[in-house]
């Protein structure tokens, strides 16, 4: 699923436009794996496993792999459908410099949800 983020975001012109002032990298933790998501003017340049301990981003978003697997379903169950719902339920964590996240919160929520298949009907 995580491999879909780049293409799904970049194919969504409206989402890229909403993120036009976002140029940074953040860490996305999926279970024990950390990925560095690099964004340039709203487009996702790369999503790569974190290879070196010194590689980091402005902020980090982490949850268990089972949580992300549910999050990326077409209709996730409650507490798993949204990053803030996951925070409220205590099953996700955010760290680092939260300012750019807050300044573009809906954009980042939509980037995270980009791999989600459309719901039917």
């Amino acid at each position: 699923m995580i491999n879909r983020i780049r293409d799904r975001v970049n194919a969504n012109a409206a989402l890229v436009r909403r993120g036009q002032y976002v140029s940074l990298a953040f860490l996305l933790g999926v279970g024990e794996e950390d990925y560095l998501v690099t964004i340039d003017k709203g487009r996702v340049s790369s999503v790569e496993p974190r290879r070196l301990a010194t590689v980091t981003g402005r902020f980090t978003i982490r949850a268990a792999k089972t949580v992300w697997d549910e999050f990326w379903k077409p209709v996730p169950k409650r507490n798993h459908h949204d990053l803030w719902a996951m925070l409220a339920a205590g099953i996700a964590k955010i760290d680092g410099d939260l300012l750019p996240l807050m300044q573009n919160l809906q954009y980042f929520k939509d980037v995270l949800a980009a791999p989600r298949p459309p719901r039917e009907g």
Binding site: V75, D82, L99, M102, L105, Q106, K109
Partner: peptide, 18 residues
């Protein structure tokens, strides 16, 4: 340094059911 309207909406957007 954070747009109030945008951040308020983004905070509660996950409160709408999928």
């Amino acid at each position: 340094d954070v747009h109030g309207g945008e951040v308020c909406a983004a905070f509660v957007s996950g409160q709408v059911a999928p």
